[in-house]
Design a protein around this nucleic acid. Structure first.
Lengths: 254, 254
DNA sequence: CGCGCTGTTTGATCTGTATCAAGTTTGCTC
DNA sequence: GAGCAAACTTGATACAGATCAAACAGCGCG
């Protein structure tokens, strides 16, 4: 593990409050690895042996069933993923692959479970982390069930803009077909949905989104903090995934 | 609170392992209340002041957005709900109403948060509980994104049958329109979907489902424990909701 | 017991989204 | 910088599922 990495991990809400001694022991047991793009890291159904942390690059979490595949999240540095499977000592519910060249740190699930049993502060952090993750997925499920595809795209653009500090313009953080899959639609429909938002103040120029009329966008998106988050108490916006925890200022999930 | 209720709560995985002293203190702070059917208990967006436990009856968790409403879960005795919101001291993401006459016990969220800070065993139970809840919602989201409506119904019937001990016949645990909403479809389509499963060994007779050809049903449902659960480690099947934890043998969520 | 409400089923139609099929652009490799 | 593959866009068509409408069943209540 590189010198700068340990303090970066230590800053994550999940690891911030634990005993230094325990943190050091976890880091001792961990190991880092670099992966090329498009490499499978995890197959759903396998036993969860490691908590993963993305240090560089990006990782897609996806689920497969029969011939279908859907993106559940894209995790960016510095974030953990698949925390819940590690805790339950259960099979992964999702698969993971690198989107780009990535550096991943892996902490043995065994050590993780041992640690929150002896470190009450770490236990509390884990509780908080899991509760946040839970709420993120609930938001995702609500969105899928309550909004149509155009509304989902509008809300997504709004969230991204807010995350960029209410910027009127931002770059989409992943390939459009990935975003489309995450939002539960085909790439074709994603494209059409964005286009259909043009009368409502949204322009797309390649990978860039420009918001020319926030009021109109808000109208379509029907913004609701209960769906779109983030939780007021969270210090960084948090989205869908199995254990994202980010350093404020770092872009996180999709 | 009635005499028999405290031990029933104590048997829940969430409360089973904590210090007796702390459990007693929580119960002291709690209070019970009876509600008629169709009464709103919780509105999404309100601050989460209490962890709820259904002792009798049934509670629907649902989400609203604009004019749409969707059922997220039906919670049956003995189960907790909206744990995550309590932990984060954040607004409820879902609303709740009684489906039938119900008895509910409410534990102040404040006491809950204080307790897992001083009781490491309770903290561990809470972690386990939240991780299970998280995985349940992920399964729900996967199901919505990967399966079409007929497949969702087939998988649902399969789950219910398994929960009834692989029974060839069982009674649907809630109104069909409720199940339909939970499964992300209209009541009309739920009805049609079940009918379309007739060639695959599923017959519906009023509220009763009869499986005449399990092999054929398995074929359509494309059973996958990673979607359909339960986790092998869980002692009772667990489904979607914000904190269900059940006494084995009690029917739980939808 | 019959009335009326609510839930369920069935059929007809409509619509949002997927699929299929070209094009067009982008970006990477050599 | 040419050539190629992959991503993206656009249009045409197909289909799953929603909506609308109506008949029917079950159940609570007077």
């Amino acid at each position: 593990m590189r010198d700068h990495e340990k303090p970066e991990i230590r800053k994550l809400p999940l690891f911030r409050d634990m005993q230094t001694e325990n943190f050091e022991r976890l880091m001792q047991a961990a190991y880092a690895q670099a992966f090329p793009a498009q490499l499978d890291l995890i197959h759903q159904g396998e036993p969860a042996d490691f908590l993963h942390i993305v240090m560089e690059g990006a990782v897609e979490l996806y689920a497969k069933w029969r011939s279908n595949e859907t993106t559940m999240a894209v995790v960016r540095p510095v974030s953990t993923f698949i925390l819940a499977a590690c805790i339950k000592d259960a099979p992964y519910l999702m698969s993971a692959r690198t989107v780009e060249k990535s550096r991943i740190i892996m902490i043995p699930a065994e050590d993780l479970r041992a640690t929150f049993r002896i470190d009450p502060d770490f236990a509390v952090s884990t509780i908080s982390e899991l509760a946040s993750c839970y709420r993120s997925v609930v938001r995702h499920a609500k969105e899928l069930k309550l909004r149509n595809s155009r509304e989902r795209v509008a809300a997504y653009i709004q969230r991204q803009s807010r995350r960029a500090g209410d910027a009127a313009s931002f770059i989409l953080p992943a390939e459009k077909k990935l975003l489309a899959s995450y939002l539960g639609m085909t790439p074709e429909n994603f494209s059409r949905a964005v286009k259909s938002l043009q009368p409502f103040g949204v322009v797309m120029d390649g990978p860039r989104i420009i918001i020319t009329d926030r009021g109109a966008l808000d109208q379509v998106a029907g913004t609701n903090p209960l769906i779109d988050g983030p939780d007021p108490s969270a210090e960084s916006p948090r989205l869908e995934t199995d254990g994202p925890s980010n350093i404020p200022g770092h872009l996180k999930v999709i």
